[in-house]
């Protein structure tokens, strides 16, 4: 059976126009994957909105102004106001911070823990591998949202507990992927060479196995960022996400669905639009990254 080998480090990180500068690579990426680039632009906008929320948002997102409650979208309030008279646009902009924070933190924790556990499991094998994989089986037996819900209930709703809970649901998937990559990488000549020159297990794992197992994990991570943001919105919709008054898109949608769907649809529509836009953008970018990083798809 033909065996596909994972490319060496240099190939993994420079899949685009080799030798070109960063802008050249970006331009090359845009030409080859315009939809992916569009997704990247949306996400860049999200990041900028999150960073410069204080400048972009015209109003304080949590300050109540009851006499201005339920104003329709217009010139004074771009996307209208909620029942407390808070500006929906400002809350969406600040909500981007929450979404991005939870997405990045959960993916970062999940990726670091998952890669280390998965790679060590694949590299070490034996009883340790067996044990880790059965635990992973157990964790994957839970629907991710239910598992996150249980963890948040146990820890109490807060931005950090939501991020941690989502990271836990992500870890088993990364472990599986990192282990599979590690198993494949361990068969490579350069690993044998490292062993032959007396490299220790820890060094071989950290310097050779882990870096060469990262490419598919990156693709998974990109996709999971969107999933994590949706999961946070789902938890907030169930009332278990970020506690008020911090704005979160899921919480805002839940608020709107509490009897205002018809009378004030903007309360639900605009946070929903932001959420679906970002998830769609993550999907586009993730697909494009997979295409350029996966050697089997490269060049298509």
């Amino acid at each position: 059976m033909a065996q596909t080998t994972v490319p060496l480090q240099a190939d993994v990180f420079l899949p685009l126009a080799q030798g070109a500068g960063i802008f050249g690579q970006l331009w090359d990426f845009t030409k080859r994957k315009p939809l992916g680039a569009a997704g990247a632009v949306v996400l860049l906008t999200l990041v900028l909105a999150a960073i410069f929320a204080d400048v972009i948002a015209p109003y304080d997102p949590i300050a109540q102004n009851v006499p201005h409650r339920l104003r329709e979208p217009g010139t004074e309030y771009l996307l209208g106001t909620d029942t407390y008279g808070r500006d929906v646009f400002s809350r969406i902009v600040f909500g981007a911070r929450v979404s991005l924070y939870i997405g990045l933190v959960s993916v970062l924790i999940g990726t670091v823990v998952g890669v280390l556990v998965g790679a060590s499991s694949g590299y070490t094998g034996g009883v340790y591998d067996l044990l880790v994989q059965r635990i992973v089986d157990g964790m994957m037996g839970f629907p991710p949202l239910i598992l996150a819900l249980i963890l948040v209930v146990a820890m109490g709703p807060s931005i950090n507990s939501v991020a941690f809970a989502l990271a836990v649901t992500y870890i088993p998937r990364v472990v599986r992927l990192a282990r599979a990559s590690a198993l494949s990488t361990c068969q490579e000549m350069f690993v044998d060479a490292a062993r032959a020159i007396g490299g220790g297990h820890l060094r071989i794992m950290l310097r050779h196995v882990v870096p060469n197992s990262l490419a598919p994990v990156f693709v998974l991570a990109t996709g999971y960022l969107g999933t994590a943001i949706v999961a946070e919105a789902s938890l907030s919709f169930l009332g278990l996400g970020v506690p008020p008054p911090s704005p979160s898109w899921g919480g805002m949608m839940q608020f709107g669905a509490r009897g205002y769907l018809e009378a004030a649809p903007w309360l639900t529509f605009f946070p929903g639009l932001a959420l679906s836009g970002v998830v769609f953008a993550f999907g586009l970018l993730g697909d494009a990254l997979r295409d350029v990083l996966d050697p089997r798809l490269r060049g298509r």
Partner: peptide, 26 residues
């Protein structure tokens, strides 16, 4: 109670004007 969040969120906001920071325990 989590199902009462709407009223709790209101006076949480109102009390901020007095400098009282309520941390809602939902």
């Amino acid at each position: 109670r989590r199902s009462w969040v709407q009223i709790c969120e209101w006076f949480q906001g109102d009390y901020s004007g007095l400098g009282v920071k309520l941390k809602l325990d939902l």
